[in-house]
Amino acid sequence: MAVNISYQGRKHELQDGETVLDGLLRHGQDVPSSCKAGACQSCLMQANDGNPGSKAQIGLKDTLKAQNFFLACQCIPDKDLSISLPSLADTTIPAEIIGKEQLCHNVIALRLKPSADFSCRAGQYINLLSENGSVIRSYSVANLSEQDGYLELHIRRIDNGAMSVWACDKAKEGDQVHIRGPAGECFYVAADGDQSFPILLAGTGTGLAPLEGVVLDALAQGHKGDIRILHGALSEHDLYHVDMLKELAKLHKNLTYTPCVLNMKHDKPGFHTGPLDQFVMHTMEPLDKKTLHTYFCGAPEMVNLLKKKVFLAGVASKNIFSDPFIMKH
């Protein structure tokens, strides 16, 4: 028995085992998507009739689940479904660009002021929508947004990138955008009020954004344990916020920051030269694995490698937080 998806007044038949997203794309429907891995929530849709199944709702807020929102890339229905895109008004909020800054040769900071209350933990990510809503990309929040009154995103310019080229080349203060979210599990938590555990954070490229957020949040909440943040880059000119993080580490005795460069022309004090994963394992050595909390963000291969390595070395899976930055397919 074939399964049909009713969308925009037409029936679309799904192939055996095909996800709602793949089926709609195959039928030529222009449905937003990005990672196709159930992580970014760009393909968020709503079931008006029929049950999308809980597997397609993993990661969604309870309020969205209760309204039958689901992720099209994770939904393989066994019965007919009638669905629609979330209307912009329901789930998205307008925001104004109030600041833009070049952080290094290919990364900018964009500061957004949401037009309505938007609560977000530092380190979570939001979805940024293009003007007509057809391009959606996820960016992590690097600051304490409620305190600062704006969300700070770090955006790397990708060649032919549907969002990043506009953001880096064209976007300016005063421009209006729409945002959705937040989502993600990369934020500071201190269960049972115990704030003495060590924290190790490592990321590549703009993976620094959520890690900065987590560090700022931990410090603001009075975290007492050791905090070690490592930022990995191919070469020195790919780093950013070096001075800012050095200053922050000077102000807080329990914070250590090390920029980690793969290819360095000459050894330089205050920089580590070599592969990030080796340096993470080295940094982790003196820390108590049983209580250690780790945060890894950025390039998926590095994130997955680090997760696996620290897990095998004894870090509890529930204390490994990550956000792999999966590129649009």
């Binding site: 891995a37 997955n304 897990f311 095998l312 899976s317 490994i320 990550s322």
Partner: peptide
């Protein structure tokens, strides 16, 4: 899960899978 990942007999079936 650590025992499984450390055992070459079976760890290959977990290659490339998302740990979470």
């Amino acid at each position: 899960y650590r025992k499984m990942l450390a055992d070459d007999k079976v760890s290959g079936f977990f290659d490339g899978t998302d740990m979470d």
